[in-house]
Simulated scan of single mutants.
Amino acid sequence: LSRFLDFDSDEDNAAVLVNNYDWMKNITFLDFIRDVGKHITVNYMMAKDSVKKRLDADAKEGMSFTEFTYQLVQGYDFLYLYQNYNCTLQMGGSDQWGNITTGTELIRRIGGGKGFALTCPLITKADGTKFGKTEQGNIWLDAHRTSPYRFYQYWLNTSDQDAEKYIKIFTFLSKAEIENLIEEHQQAPHQRALQKRLAEEITVMVHSKGELDNAMMASTILFGKATSENLKNLDETTFLEIFEGVPQATISKEELTNGLDMIGALAAKTGFLNSNGEARRELKQNSISVNKEKVSETYLIKESDLINDRYVLLQRGKKNYFVLVVT
């Protein structure tokens, strides 16, 4: 978050990251219903659209006590921030309107002040599902949870409809630039101009230009003219993500001391190819590569071939990959 918010500023409104557990952990249930719950009526809580929809006769499932009372908990958070941090505005998705306004009500009734709510429409995908942390297949800003490569690929693989929407929401491109990109994309959708620019802009914003360059280079590993040097420049996480699902075999590092022959690497010791004979035929046809470099039957795989001191990439033709894991 420090890429977007200044936590070190000397200004009075410098960003502060807090955990509501710090002020909730010592409040008992009885204390909460006595000091907070008495200020909000059940009628008020039932009137929230988020509650009424769940209790409607046509609703597929009911509402638990936890879900029903959560607006009180979130509302109290707003009250605490108002009282202790002079926070007067809470922002969120439109589905949070009821919870946030419960907070403004507590600020009025308990704090004797004014709180404000600002919500924006929920961002949805072309299939109608919500774009958010609770949906499957989404991404994190933290590089440890979603690597820059996977982050870049996520945006690159969005649908045309979503890309046109997201580039307006998640980038700072001008209206004219966006309109030109949309027109360019419509004329040649297969070139995916929208997705490429979207992925580039957001990856630089969230990570850096260097991480974008690395992600774009990594993307050429499978689909472009990559070299052995490109492979060896990959970090382990990115390498494993690129070749996720590719068949693997494990061999000991000792086998590389004097060099592992190609027949053993392709068949006898790994099972990548079905037989030694098939391995010899493929080698004679010049269709075998080690770390993206064509090799012959006389080639020996050595420790100098290791990627991240642990992996060797074997390849037959353009699309058949196999990873040797060296332990």
Rank of each mutant, 00 (worst) to 15 (best):
residue 154 Y to G: 07
residue 152 Y to A: 13
residue 137 G to D: 13
residue 145 R to I: 04
residue 152 Y to K: 00
residue 148 P to M: 11
residue 151 F to I: 04
residue 157 N to Y: 04
residue 156 L to E: 09
residue 133 K to V: 08
residue 140 W to N: 00
residue 127 D to P: 06
residue 139 I to N: 13
residue 145 R to N: 15
residue 141 L to R: 08
residue 139 I to P: 07
residue 149 Y to P: 05
residue 152 Y to D: 11
residue 157 N to M: 00
residue 131 F to I: 10
residue 132 G to C: 01
residue 144 H to N: 15
residue 147 S to Q: 01
residue 140 W to C: 06
residue 154 Y to V: 06
residue 135 E to I: 14
residue 143 A to I: 00
residue 155 W to T: 10
residue 128 G to T: 02
residue 149 Y to E: 01
residue 145 R to F: 14
residue 129 T to M: 02
residue 130 K to W: 12
residue 137 G to V: 09
residue 134 T to K: 09
residue 139 I to V: 14
residue 145 R to M: 09
residue 139 I to W: 02
residue 144 H to L: 11
residue 152 Y to S: 10
residue 158 T to A: 05
residue 156 L to M: 13
residue 158 T to D: 14
residue 154 Y to A: 02
residue 151 F to H: 05
residue 133 K to N: 10
residue 157 N to L: 06
residue 129 T to W: 07
residue 129 T to F: 07
residue 131 F to S: 07
residue 133 K to M: 08
residue 135 E to T: 15
residue 139 I to S: 07
residue 130 K to P: 07
residue 128 G to M: 10
residue 132 G to W: 04
residue 137 G to I: 10
residue 156 L to G: 01
residue 147 S to W: 00
residue 138 N to E: 11
residue 148 P to G: 12
residue 141 L to P: 13
residue 147 S to C: 01
residue 141 L to Y: 13
residue 141 L to W: 13
residue 148 P to I: 02
residue 136 Q to E: 12
residue 151 F to Q: 06
residue 128 G to V: 09
residue 134 T to I: 03
residue 146 T to M: 08
residue 138 N to I: 02
residue 150 R to S: 12
residue 153 Q to V: 05
residue 130 K to S: 14
residue 143 A to Y: 01
